[in-house]
Design a protein around this nucleic acid. Sequence first.
DNA 1: TGAGACGAATATAACGTTTTTATAACAGCC
DNA 2: GGCTGTTATAAAAACGTTATATTCGTCTCA
Lengths: 348, 348
Amino acid sequence: MADRLTIYEVAKRSGVSTATVSRVMADGKGFSATTRERVRATAAELGWVPSGSARGLASKRNGIVGLLFPDLGHSGELEEESPLYVDQVIRGAERAATTAGHAVLIAATRTAAGRDLAFMVAGKVDGVVVMARCLSEEDIEVLARSLPVVVLANRYGDGGPDFVGTDNRGGSRAVATHLIRVHARTDLAFLAGPADSPDSVERFTGFCEALHDADLPVPDSPASSGGFTEAGGGAAVAALIAEGRRPQAIVCGNDEMAVGALSALRASGLRVPADIAVTGFDDIGVAHHVRPALTTVRQPMRALGEKAVQTLFDRVHDRSAPRKSVVLPTEVVIRRSCGCRHTKENQP
Amino acid sequence: MADRLTIYEVAKRSGVSTATVSRVMADGKGFSATTRERVRATAAELGWVPSGSARGLASKRNGIVGLLFPDLGHSGELEEESPLYVDQVIRGAERAATTAGHAVLIAATRTAAGRDLAFMVAGKVDGVVVMARCLSEEDIEVLARSLPVVVLANRYGDGGPDFVGTDNRGGSRAVATHLIRVHARTDLAFLAGPADSPDSVERFTGFCEALHDADLPVPDSPASSGGFTEAGGGAAVAALIAEGRRPQAIVCGNDEMAVGALSALRASGLRVPADIAVTGFDDIGVAHHVRPALTTVRQPMRALGEKAVQTLFDRVHDRSAPRKSVVLPTEVVIRRSCGCRHTKENQP
DNA sequence: TGAGACGAATATAACGTTTTTATAACAGCC
DNA sequence: GGCTGTTATAAAAACGTTATATTCGTCTCA
């Protein structure tokens, strides 16, 4: 019986031309109300859904933005440990996209065929947001030559695509300054993440700036490193204590390590914050459930996703605009682990 | 200078035909290794990304699965309250899709143009997973006529598309049975969600089955309703207490209401679980942080997303296979609020 | 040496829309 | 009743791939 269902069939049955059907489906102008209704009814009756591919091909618009991220929990046992903030970024991106009538095409790249997937995605969208380190700089450059690209949270050089990130440095500086000014701590240790993590490096830089601001000695390198994991943070702090080091505060590169630090300090019989203050970074969910509740720095992950997509749309709209670089402010979340008695915490 | 970059340009520069370029990019067969390298090099050099639309049009394959959900936090002030489980479903879907070399196109439908977005998405994908109540039954039916559809967590009639959901009824029955058998509670109250929520209805049904199993009187309707919100749950329980009702246990339709119930009971000077036991449903994040830690029922949201996409692929692969209906088991998570002393909790 | 067979590469017709450009219908106006 | 200016519709040319059917060599084996 029926051939494959196309716009021709719908046009014929509605007694109009394909052009009219096209305009009706696109909510355009140039047809009467009755025509509109007739066409819509026919389409629904036949169960016709216009081919997005044909549409995209003919119109050169896809109505889709891509979002590439390194991983979303493919790492076997570590599933639940995979970065939760990705969810928030997706939410933000989805919101900004929906507002503009676009859908979001997501894909993780840290898998075997990840690079291929990334290019496949790139071919289907009007522009793409690329999260930190999920594609090589060369690949990003190739993509950027053929479609709008926004890089998220990890700037690539100076001449690259638009960039949106958070103020790691400022947040770290602020929380360290809080420890110095408010709690009069003068001997602070920084617990770093992986050495090749730009986040960790920026946070250490902010930490150093705070020390510098207060005329305290500035270290060349972090006191220790915990690989951004809870276990690593605990081990690093335990080692520090075993060496006889007793800083007045430990500024941790992220919350996971801070949680580990808390356990390690308790195990050593040291009190937080009385003996040693501890701060984290990221404000993950457990931060305000752990005891003492963790003073940390919150990154506006959702806003990040939103801003990234908005920036992408700006770029789609004007491909020759000057390169944009957006840095969203971070926010210090005061709880107990820094020594404060009254927590100051807005809802996330 | 350059025209718009197409396969023709790449073919010309590589000294081969477009067909060869196409096959090389698709990792097909029928070309020599040298040709392959030459073409790939040219493509990279030119920064050419094959048009996904043209590809999809010609091949009738998109390499994309759609995922439609009602909302992802567009509701103004309630942002953070929006259902977190959606994130998990997305993660599961993304994983299953990536495994098959597909990307995931996501869109929320509870917005003004939500329905249009849904149809737009449908036109771009090889199949679509539709989450509970984000599209009318008629719309789903229209979609299902033109592409594979899997309905998530909310069955539509008996003749509809493939279905994947969780065992609400069984989970509710299991947790109620636990209260009866292990903790010898005989006077249980069910705190329902919105009356039109199939989830709530199924959970109430399971609750009733447990009572029936134990030869306890089975109520016609829930003891009270809290609209699935923390405030609503608290208010409902407060009202119950004010009326002089003192059930031995309150089985809540979801965790939010259970958390509200906990507060309300504390405010009334009642001890949980000594005076009244409380259970929840969903195992949201706070469930194990609240005091007493909440005994609840966990739904495998991530597995749900994964299974939905796998089921979708099955359908794509064989469109005439018999209708499939998958119900994933739920799991009772024993904590303190039911009266148990030793929590039994696997990592989520 | 020639017939077959096989691998590599090509030419070209789909694929199903949107978008011009052109035409037809239809008021309103003198 | 012809003229004009809108508006609604029609016809056909893109859009950039993939897939089918073919061609072209080269190799193998009788």
